[in-house]
Structures are given as C-alpha cells and as structure tokens.
C-alpha cells in the first residue's frame, strides 16, 4: 500500500468542504447520541438532534445586542468554517491531496492561530460582558496550548526531515509515528480539542459564564459557529492521520478508505472525551501546560531528533 502523495486537480476542492461538513455533522450526531444516552433516552433520538438544531437555527431570528461591533462579530462567526476548510487543503485523503505545500505543517499551524483571532472577535463583537470573558478565556487557554502544539507538530516533521505532509506520511512507511512519539501525539490531540474549545477545554463557552462567546449569538451566526467548532475538531482529527497514524497506510482496504476510517475513529474519540473528562480551568491549566506539558514536548522532540540524527 502507501502510494506516494500526489496533488489532484483544484476542481476536487468543491468536494472537500462537503466531506468536512459531513464529518462534522457525524461528530455532532455522535455527541447528540451520547448526550441523549447520558440522560436515559435512546441514543438514536439524540443522533438526529443536530439536524433539528440546524433547522431551528436557520429559522431563528437574529438577536442584536446594543452597540455590537457587527462587522467583527460576523467575521468571527463566519471565519471558523473557512479556517477549517483551509486546514483540510493540506490533509491528504489516501494518495490524493489538494495542495501539496512545501510547508504544509506550518500551514496547518497558521490556520490554528487564526482561531485565536476568530474566537476573540466573536467574544468582542457582541459587546456583552460574558461574551467578552469567553473570548479572553480562549486567549488565555491559547497561550497555554499553543507552544506545546507547535512542538508536537514539528516532531513528526523532524522525523520526516520535511515540513511537507506527503513526506511525513512517506516517512511512516515502516512504523507509525504514534508508536515512537506518543507524547507528541497526546499533546497534539489535547491541543486540537483545546483550539476547538471543546470538552475539558470548553471553558470559553462555559456554563459558569452563561455560554461565554456563544451567549449572544443566535440564528445563522450561532449555526456557523457551532458548525465551525465541529469542523475544526474534524480537521484536527483528520490531520492526526497523516501526522501520526501513517496516513492512508493499512492492510486490505485502499488508502483513501483508511484515511477516512482513521479520521472517523479519532474524531469519535475527540467527541467522546467530552463526556468522560471534567472541565479544566484555564488559569490552573496554564501552570501545568508550562511546567509539565511544554518540557515534555521538548523532550519528545529531543528524543526524536537524536534518533533521527543517529539513524
């Protein structure tokens, strides 16, 4: 298996957002099912909840707050889905990729930093206290997760001696990176969950601040933000596959199907973790991130670099 990665015609870019949104919808469906089961209803009734919510939000009238910065607010709300789509441009599906960038890993990282701006803009735009607190909370969480994430991203790049995603996949022909860089993998997964403001890292939309930056968004804006959160979570799960899980490599099935199966499994794990792990306060997490997680990420890079130089 494991054919070399080739760049396909840009015409396929039409399908990529569709696939991304399907995955995001599936993730939302799984989350709905888990929520329904946790309150004793059959999971099936919850799985269709996202569709009902889409219909409801599409018909809902926009509420406007006093002196809202509508321009920035709309940019923040609409930008998440765009960023998620830009992320998946460099993620190969089996042997095919839309943009075989020399610096694909950095591209993904750049799009993740865009989320800093977007979440803060959503929080700022509403001109409401809880919303703004949510935006600030996200930034405070971001300065905790971002550096470990950067080192977790360059670890596979160091091993592959290239920032090109295709080279990273090719370098895992014999052994998946998750096997010999598990720390980087765990940090990457945690950071994906954090930049999606999801699960244990969802304090920016926490119940204690009345929904944080989601407090005052309604209608289509809310739909775009919620979709965008699932979409960036999906893009993160999809990027774990070429980075750590051998890309399309695997037995029996064709490469593209393996990419999909692995992405689905990682996404399911990300969605499920929300129902298993309690929320982590950003102010407490900062200390843990800088004293334990960041040195762990650096040690992981060091170990990988020594192995790569030695081999």
């Amino acid at each position: 298996m494991s054919e070399p990665i080739v760049q396909v015609s840009p015409a396929w870019a039409v399908l990529a957002p569709l696939a991304l949104l399907l995955f995001a919808l599936a993730g939302a469906g799984l989350n709905g099912a888990l929520v329904a089961r946790s309150v004793g209803r059959p999971g099936r009734s919850g799985a269709s909840a996202p569709l009902a919510q889409v219909a409801r939000l599409l018909r809902q009238r926009r509420q406007v707050t006093v002196a809202a910065d509508v321009l920035l607010w709309r940019i923040g709300a609409g930008g998440l889905v765009v960023v998620a789509i830009l992320k998946i441009l460099v993620i190969p599906l089996g042997p095919w990729t839309l943009a075989d960038l020399d610096v694909g890993v950095v591209w993904f990282n750049t799009m993740d930093v865009m989320i800093w701006a977007l979440f803060w803009l959503i929080g700022w735009g509403a001109n409401s206290a809880h919303s703004l607190v949510g935006g600030y909370r996200f930034l405070s969480l971001a300065v905790s997760y971002e550096l470990p994430l950067m080192f977790a991203l360059i670890t596979p790049a160091v091993a592959a001696r290239s920032l090109r995603v295709g080279d990273v996949v090719a370098a895992q022909h014999d052994l998946w990176f998750v096997i010999w860089m598990p720390v980087a993998f765990v940090i990457f997964c945690g950071s994906v969950i954090a930049f999606s403001s999801w699960g244990p890292f969802a304090t920016a939309v926490g119940r204690d601040i009345a929904g944080g930056f989601l407090t005052d968004v309604s209608g289509v804006d809310r739909l775009l933000i919620l979709t965008g959160r699932y979409a960036v979570l999906t893009a993160g799960a999809a990027f774990a596959v070429p980075l750590f899980l051998g890309g399309g490599g695997g037995a029996l099935l064709p490469d593209w199907l393996w990419s999909i199966v692995k992405t689905a499994l990682v996404l399911a794990a990300f969605v499920a973790i929300r129902h298993r792990v309690p929320t982590i306060r950003p102010d407490r997490f900062a200390e843990v991130a800088w004293i334990i997680v960041l040195p762990a990420a650096l040690l992981q890079v060091l170990v990988v670099a020594i192995i790569v130089v030695g081999s």
């Binding site: 950095v106 990282n109 750049t110 930093v113 865009m114 800093w116 701006a117 803060w120 930034l139 971001a142 300065v143 971002e146």
Partner: peptide, 10 residues
C-alpha cells in the same frame, strides 16, 4: 501570517 495574527490577537 502565523506570527502576525498571533501577535495581533495578543
């Protein structure tokens, strides 16, 4: 782009 967006956010 990465550095500047991050910097502006902060």
């Amino acid at each position: 782009i990465l550095m500047m967006v991050m910097e502006m956010a902060i």
